[in-house]
């Protein structure tokens, strides 16, 4: 577990995509991270937030006006575009295909949740290997821990919100336990790190 500055540069050689998972407290945490992404950000960002399955999603609408990057709800078989934040729709898992298109699935909920963070992280780890950066934020669940381990095992970088700062520390703690190599950071540091990933040549 590493904290504080100067920030360690997590071990992704050159990042090609970012995945983020969050549950209880997600909106506040994402409000620090997503609006910090600059215009022309070169990476696609896929986000799973645990939301109730009542069909109408508000996450994309909520963040669209706060962000300088494009924000939308993911469509099935949509090719990933840089500078775009894709939210998993309610009641569907979001996955990344080996050809780096998005796909949706209504397989069984995982950790009582659909969408589930593990499903996104594991498929993205398969698709991007070491070129993936995964971020696990606040939540009262253990979803995301297995996925974070899969990202690490594939050589990708794992960032976890500091449990002291998280509105709900259960999920970050489970992530750190499953993936001890993870870099533990405060939200502002995560935001800065993701911004810097976009600046690297």
């Amino acid at each position: 577990m590493t904290t504080g500055s100067p920030l360690p540069v997590p071990h992704a050689p050159r990042a090609e995509a970012v995945v983020i998972g969050a549950s209880a407290g997600a909106v506040d945490a994402l409000s620090v991270i997503l609006p910090a992404l600059p215009e022309g950000y070169p990476l696609p960002v896929m986000v799973v937030v645990h939301v109730p399955p009542n069909k109408k999603s508000i996450m994309a609408e909520l963040f669209r006006n706060k962000c300088r990057v494009d924000v939308r709800e993911a469509d099935d078989k949509e090719p990933l575009a840089p500078g775009t934040v894709y939210f998993a729709p309610p009641d569907y898992h979001l996955l990344v295909e080996p050809d780096r298109r998005l796909s949706l699935s209504s397989e069984e909920p995982v950790h009582y949740s659909r969408p589930a963070i593990d499903v996104l992280f594991e498929s993205a780890a398969d698709a991007f290997g070491p070129a993936l950066v995964a971020v696990l934020l606040t939540g009262a669940s253990s979803d995301g821990a297995c996925g974070l381990k899969a990202v690490c095992d594939a050589g990708g970088a794992a960032l976890v919100q500091h449990p002291d700062e998280a509105a709900m520390p259960t999920m970050p703690r489970a992530g750190i336990a499953a993936c001890p190599k993870a870099s533990v950071m405060y939200l502002e540091q995560i935001a800065g790190h993701l911004r810097d990933l976009g600046r690297r040549p």
Partner: peptide, 9 residues
């Protein structure tokens, strides 16, 4: 089939 989901299953 979509490989990501088939792989998982």
């Amino acid at each position: 089939y979509s490989m990501a989901s088939i792989t998982r299953r």
